[in-house]
Amino acid sequence: MTEFGNPVRLADIGDRIAIGAMLARAFANDPATSFIFPDDEERAKRLPRLFALLFDEDARGMRVMTQGGEAAALWRGPGQNHTSILDMLLQAWPIWRIFGGALGRALAVSNAIDAHFPAGDYWFLHIAGCDPAAQGRGLGGAVIRSALDRVAGSGLPAYLETATPRNLSFYRGLGFEVTAEWTVPKGGPLFWSMMRAPR
């Protein structure tokens, strides 16, 4: 699929490491990742492994990327927004290796996100990012639009949350509207919940 001259495709396991590294660069200064890993060097070291793990977790949903891997969006399908207890137990060691002493802050963010999920069925835009070196070329919008086109026949809304204020106008341009504003406890960042009505 090509959108606005940008080839977009579904990602597979062979893209795991490259997408994890790209998302780490995209989220290097994100308020949530900066809260979880306050130290810049520690954050740069741990984020690629974190995003590779999240790439694996979203295998049952939809993983969309530009052909060159400059941008990607990881989606969870209806009813898949929460991670099961079994999945958490299976991932316990990798999670500990990724977070170490930052696990408490990571859980504070994760629990706050879980607490603000809306009721009902929807597609959840779990993670979306564009390599800073490739921003401004429409690649981030292309991967999100491609996924939205793929789920258009489902009759379901799409949901996301963001802790980055400049993302609000970007997502509004894609049809999302703010539905809630909330703060992660214990000094965490401000988040916005956004929903896009079915098209």
Results as ranks from 00 to 15, higher is better:
20 G>K: 01
109 V>C: 04
25 R>L: 10
166 R>F: 14
199 R>E: 15
41 E>D: 10
25 R>F: 02
55 F>P: 08
159 Y>M: 09
68 G>T: 02
171 Y>D: 04
82 H>Y: 14
29 N>F: 10
144 I>M: 08
58 D>T: 14
78 P>Q: 00
75 W>D: 03
136 G>N: 11
116 H>W: 07
93 W>G: 12
132 P>C: 01
142 A>K: 09
158 A>E: 11
196 R>L: 09
113 I>P: 10
45 K>M: 14
127 I>W: 01
182 W>V: 11
51 F>R: 09
180 A>D: 15
66 T>K: 01
2 T>I: 11
56 D>Y: 02
110 S>A: 13
4 F>N: 15
146 S>M: 13
46 R>L: 00
154 S>V: 10
102 A>L: 02
20 G>E: 04
47 L>A: 01
40 D>K: 03
185 P>T: 06
157 P>K: 01
189 P>M: 09
31 P>T: 07
87 D>M: 09
56 D>K: 05
172 R>D: 15
178 V>F: 06
82 H>N: 12
191 F>N: 12
55 F>C: 06
189 P>I: 00
77 G>I: 05
135 Q>Y: 09
141 G>M: 08
179 T>I: 11
61 G>S: 02
29 N>K: 10
125 L>P: 08
67 Q>P: 02
106 A>H: 03
5 G>R: 02
5 G>E: 04
87 D>Y: 07
152 A>T: 04
28 A>Y: 03
98 I>W: 02
106 A>N: 08
182 W>M: 10
121 D>C: 05
156 L>G: 05
108 A>D: 14
181 E>W: 08
181 E>G: 07
52 A>L: 00
44 A>N: 02
155 G>S: 09
35 F>I: 03
1 M>Q: 11
161 E>C: 02
135 Q>N: 01
82 H>C: 08
92 A>V: 08
159 Y>P: 00
93 W>N: 10
74 L>K: 05
40 D>T: 12
57 E>D: 12
171 Y>F: 14
75 W>R: 06
180 A>Q: 14
160 L>I: 03
13 I>K: 14
125 L>Q: 00
77 G>Q: 03
141 G>T: 06
69 G>E: 01
112 A>V: 12
185 P>M: 12
10 L>D: 15
115 A>H: 01
184 V>K: 06
102 A>C: 13
53 L>A: 15
